[in-house]
Design a binder for these strands. Structure first.
Lengths: 247, 247
DNA sequence: GTCCCGAGGAACGTTCAACAATAAGGAGTC
DNA sequence: GACTCCTTATTGTTGAACGTTCCTCGGGAC
C-alpha cells in the first residue's frame, strides 16, 4: 500500500495549493475507505480539529465534502458519522452500476481502442495483488476496471459520479471480515468480461455484466446483513461501543 | 399544499431546521437558475454576507453547496462566480442525458405504470404555460418530464445526479434572449416521446429520444456560442460590465 | 506605441473565541 | 419499569482578525 510518497517535503511554491480543507478531506477519505474509520464512527469536528491541527471550521468544510461524496451522513444538530450503507443503499448502488456500466459496454464499439487495450492490465494487476495476498488492491483494481468501462463513454461528469459510487462501495469492502473470499472470485469474471469487450462481443458482454453485477450485489448485501446483525447484537450487549469515537 | 399537519400553530420548534447555509444556498440557486444572477457574475462572500444577513463563513458553505451542484465555479484564491457553460460542458451534459435517459426508456417496460400515466400531464402543463407565454415554465415542465423518465429507473442516486444536470442546463436557458423560440418547438416532440413510451414502443422511443437530444444539443450550443460572442464583444467594448457585480 | 514588470489594493483562506440552539443521555419521580 | 425533566456535550453560527494570493493599474524600457 504505497501512499502518496512523503507528503510533506517543503514545497513553498505550491502552485495551485490544494487547500487545507481539501487536504483534511483527503486524509479522512483515505481513512474511511481503508476501514480505519469504520461505519458508524462519529466524526466530531472538535476532535478532528485537534487531530488534524486545523480549525474547527475547516474540518466542517472537509466533512461537507465527504458528505457530498456519500461517505458521511449528518443530521442538523446530531453531527456527522461515517455512513452505514443499508441494503437499500446497496441496491441503489448496483442499479446505478448496472445502467451506467451497461451504457459503457454499449459505447465500447465507438470508443478509443487504446482505452480498451488498457483493460487487461487491470486484471493482471489484480492477479499480482492476489498473489501477494493484498486483497484490498485486488478490489481496487477491479473497481478501476469498471471505472474504465464507464470511462469509455468519455463523459467527465459520469466519471465523477461513478467515482462516488465506487467510493461508497468501498465502505462495504472495508467491513468484510474475510476480504479474500470477497474479492478473489471476481478476477476470473473480470477477465472474462474484458475478453468479451475486446473481442467486440457486445451482446455477450452485456449478459455477463448483468450476471456479474447481480451476483456481486448478492454478496455485498450478505456482508451488510452480517455486519448489520453484528452491530445489533453489539448494541444490545453491555456497553460495546455506544459511540465509536475516533481514537 | 398541506404541510405536515401542523399541530403547532407557530413554527418555533422548526423540527429539522433547513439550516442557515442551506437557506442561503437555496436562495442563490433560485436566483441563478432564473437568470437573475447570470453566468460570469462574481459571487463575493463579503457582499453576499451583507445581502443575506449571514456570516461570511456561512456564505462560504452555501457557495460550496452550489459548487457541488455545478452552478458555481471557484478557483483557489480567485473567488467564486456563476458558472459559464462551455460548449464542452454542454456536450458532456447531453452525453449524460443521452445515456441516462436512454436507460430510463429501456427500463420503461418494467416500471410502475402509474408513473408512466403521469407523463402526459407534464406535456399538458407545458402547453398551458405556452398559452400564457410563460416560457420559463414550458422549459421547466419539459425538464420535469425528462426527470420523470429517469425516475423510471427507481434510483434515488440517479435522480439526484440528473437533477444537477438539469440545473446546469437552466444556466443556458436563462441567457437565451428569445426563450420562446428556445422552448416552443419541444412541446410537440415531448408529446411524441410520451406517446411512444405509453404505447410501449421502446425501439421507436429510443430513436426519437436520440434525435431529440441531438437537436436540442445543437440548439443549446448555438445559444452558448451567441452569448459567448456577446460576452467577447462586450469585453472589448468600453467598460461594459468588466465584472458583473451583484448589486 | 507596445510590452514587461512591480506596487498597491481587493478578495480569499484560515484561525480563534464565543454564544445560542439543539439533541442525546441520565437522574429523579410516579 | 416507564415517563418526564434536566443536565450536558456538541453542533451551528457569528464576528473579527491576519496572512496569502490574485488582479489591476501605472511606470519604465525598448
Amino acid at each position: 500500500m504505497r501512499s502518496d510518497l512523503g507528503a510533506d517535503a517543503a514545497e513553498p511554491p505550491q502552485r495551485n495549493a490544494p487547500g487545507t480543507a481539501a487536504r483534511v478531506a483527503a486524509s479522512l477519505r483515505e481513512q474511511i475507505i481503508t476501514g480505519e474509520l469504520p461505519p458508524r464512527t462519529r466524526l466530531k469536528d472538535a476532535q478532528l480539529s485537534q487531530i488534524h491541527q486545523v480549525s474547527r471550521n475547516t474540518v466542517r468544510e472537509a466533512l461537507r465534502e465527504l458528505e457530498r461524496d456519500g461517505l458521511v451522513t449528518s443530521r442538523p444538530h446530531a453531527g456527522s458519522a461515517v455512513k452505514v450503507l443499508t441494503e437499500a443503499d446497496a441496491h441503489d448502488i448496483y442499479r446505478v452500476r448496472y445502467w451506467i456500466e451497461a451504457a459503457g459496454v454499449e459505447g465500447s464499439t465507438s470508443a478509443d481502442p487504446e482505452q480498451l487495450a488498457r483493460f487487461p492490465s487491470f486484471v493482471a494487476m489484480a492477479r499480482e495483488a492476489a498473489a501477494e495476498g493484498s486483497w484490498a488492491d485486488v478490489g481496487t483494481n477491479s473497481l478501476r476496471l469498471h471505472q474504465a468501462i464507464v470511462g469509455l463513454l468519455g463523459s467527465p461528469m459520469l466519471d465523477a459520479f461513478f467515482a462516488t459510487i465506487v467510493a461508497q462501495l468501498r465502505l462495504v469492502f472495508a467491513l468484510a471480515d474475510d476480504e479474500a473470499a470477497l474479492q478473489a472470485q471476481w478476477i476470473d469474471r473480470d477477465e472474462k468480461l474484458v475478453d468479451l469487450l475486446i473481442s467486440g462481443m457486445r451482446g455477450q458482454a452485456q449478459l455477463e455484466l448483468r450476471q456479474y453485477l447481480s451476483d456481486s450485489e448478492a454478496q455485498i448485501i450478505e456482508v451488510i446483513r452480517a455486519s448489520g446483525a453484528a452491530a445489533l447484537t453489539s448494541r444490545e450487549s453491555p456497553p460495546p461501543r455506544p459511540r465509536a469515537v475516533i481514537e
